[in-house]
């Protein structure tokens, strides 16, 4: 337990540093998609819920797992979908007005 705790802690700190390094290079233009994209990444909590569902039992346990699964899935699916929708709007110029109207949707 202690061994794996220290291992997890090591990974946590290193990932935090990697995160700072990578994310500080994101331009302000993309801060909303960045936040929404980061949001989808924490949707990985769904993986935790799936693991949990492998040994959960009892009514309360099932209810909690059900709600957690719904939350996690909304987070991960919605997060990626909405980030993609935003990012496809960022386009270069020039695009003819007609074509531009098309991909605005």
């Amino acid at each position: 337990m202690t061994g794996s705790f220290v291992g997890d802690m090591t990974i946590f700190v290193l990932a935090l540093l990697v995160g700072f390094e990578v994310i500080s290079k994101v331009p302000a233009t993309l801060h909303t998609p960045l936040m929404s994209g980061a949001n989808s990444i924490h949707g990985v909590v769904l993986v935790g819920v799936i693991i949990l569902s492998g040994y959960v039992h009892g009514t309360l346990g099932y209810v909690l797992t059900f709600v957690a699964a719904a939350f996690g899935a909304a987070n991960v699916v919605g997060g990626y979908a909405v980030t993609d929708r935003m990012l496809q709007m960022f386009r270069k110029r020039p695009v003819p007005a007609a074509a531009a109207k098309e991909d605005a949707r």
């Binding site: 705790f5 997890d8 935090l16 990697v18 994310i23 990985v44 935790g48």
Partner: peptide
């Protein structure tokens, strides 16, 4: 991630925390 001893939750959480 710490509670479950699951690495990917730890990494993803740290990335989002940094962001």
């Amino acid at each position: 991630g710490f509670v479950l001893g699951n690495v990917i939750l730890v990494i993803a959480g740290a990335l989002v925390g940094a962001s």
